[in-house]
Design a protein around this nucleic acid. Structure first.
Lengths: 296, 296
DNA sequence: TGCACTCATAGCCCCAGGCTATGGCCTCCC
DNA sequence: GGGAGGCCATAGCCTGGGGCTATGAGTGCA
């Protein structure tokens, strides 16, 4: 495990690239120029690459520096997404806009929408509750929150809704698992009869899966775990195939930590919906957020 | 700018979730238990959320903790991708497998492929050269590297190739720009006649653009910049519309920092190809990497 | 030739975060 | 009932990374 970099230093590097000098980047970071100088030098030592070309009239990134800055920007974007989501979770009380969401949507999509909302309306504090789908509906009905996001096809009575996306449950295995090399699509019956690593009963993911398996002979799960991360971990360790939201495994499949198994004959697509109280048209920030979420 | 979190602490949090106790997570991180205890407490204070439920027989994540751990996992994945890529760039000398790639592929796709290669063949040090497309071809021909990745349709003589993906140049503007609200697709002629923020001549991105504009009346660029990050920055600042690889702006569009403008009547799709010396079939790690990259 | 800008070095200082040692709490088992 | 063995938190010590200021060297411009 090759010690992780330090986000502040990465930010500094990116800023050097954008601003053209160590001193400017230091100012942007709120530190003195020599500190920035030292930090960047430290980063160069740690990565073992020359990153910055110093000249008496400014600094530019080396070829390596530009590459590293590109990757660093990705890391920073993810970190900012985290901070945004945390803000929203924390500001539950004082928020001008209150949103409730079930887990998958909250984890992978809501932070992005909130990011754009913040771009357009920087002054609106947003509160985010993450609960299960049934509770989302209850909160919207109780007018605890203006807007909710839920998974699954059923829209509880008393709510208006709009589809804002779709999620596909996928089957993933560790790269070493026999199914990783499978060329023929897996049939629903075979999947149902296999002991799987799955989310716990009551979660939206599990419910979708159980509905899809209705009528098939279904083996008991190999493991039931309470978070997407735990399920992924178990699957990576090779315990058994796992079934998870496509959003949750996107990055892992892209980087090869998990392999997606092709699937046929079983419908694991579910729509993601925004819901709000019927006959109570959305206004202000809630309307903007819905518009953002509805965009293709 | 709300101070960035610390990756080691995030890793610790994720590990607590997976391993079920602070002490275990501490051991995994190579630190003593009280240190981990303090770090996690510190993280909780900083984010303003209770993250961990401590009991005398272990610790589990709270609801908030599971959410934060989910986002943290995304950040950590991006950071690991960075470290992998840095390793590959640095190990240029001693590598058993040498790869050259042009910028866009190197920045957004190669680290992922290398990640999977490392999963399958942990002991192969990989060297990565990032140069422009012409140089990639030269290095492959000179047998400096076994495998190259280039953008664009032209395959230089003497090379075999396989398409491993496609990239689409997209037009993006700051959210405040008039085009951000445009409903009708932009025509090629209008785009060509607009002063744009673009990459420098000689870059693959610029070349593709110039080819697509051939025959149209073309305005001179508003700005020419040497990296995708710089172009994005200028576009975000509202300078002018920018044209960039879809991979480069994916995250920014998703989070609303940039808005993609629909485009019609001009072909900005280019294929990404793996190239190798003709008549020199790939073997060993190079063959595996090609197989990984070729996967849909 | 001075001024304005760049960056690096030197030297000081402080606290964040590491460590060990200890104690409370709970469960399991003898 | 009473260890034993997990868990965690607190206390107190110590070190080093990384902050700061002050300064000097290099370059370009007026």
């Amino acid at each position: 495990m090759s010690a992780l970099p330090d986000l502040d230093s990465l930010k500094l590097l990116v800023d050097v690239g954008v601003l053209g000098s160590l001193g400017q980047a230091a100012k942007a970071a709120g530190i003195a120029q020599p500190s920035a100088s030292k930090r960047v030098a430290h980063l160069e030592r740690r990565l073992g690459l020359p990153l910055v070309e110093r000249t008496p009239r400014g600094s530019t990134l080396t070829a390596e520096g530009r590459m590293v800055a590109g990757w660093a920007a990705q890391v920073l974007a993810a970190a900012e997404e985290l901070m945004r989501a945390v803000q929203a979770v924390r500001h539950g009380e004082a928020a001008h806009l209150r949103v409730a969401s079930s887990m998958t949507v909250a984890e992978y999509l809501v932070p992005r929408w909130l990011g754009e909302l913040q771009n357009r309306e920087p002054d609106v504090p947003v509160g985010l509750d993450v609960v299960n789908s049934a509770d989302v509906a209850a909160r919207v009905l109780a007018e605890d929150v203006e807007l909710g996001f839920v998974e699954g096809p059923s829209v509880p009575e008393g709510l208006d809704s709009r589809v804002v996306g779709t999620d596909r449950l996928v089957v993933v295995v560790a790269p070493g698992h026999p199914w990783a090399r499978r060329r023929t699509a897996l049939r629903g019956a075979e999947l149902a009869a296999t002991p799987l690593v799955v989310r716990e009963p009551g979660s939206g993911t599990r419910e979708t899966l159980d509905v899809a398996f209705k009528g098939l002979h279904q083996a008991s799960p190999r493991l039931e775990l309470g978070s997407n991360a735990a399920v992924k971990g178990a699957a990576q360790a090779g315990a058994a195939p796992a079934v998870l939201s496509g959003y949750a495994v996107e990055a892992d499949v892209a980087t090869g930590r998990l392999v997606e198994v092709p699937l046929a004959g079983v419908n694991l697509v579910r729509s993601l919906r925004a819901v709000w109280r019927r006959g109570r048209p959305l206004t202000g920030p809630a309307a903007i957020l819905l518009a953002i979420a509805s965009r293709p």
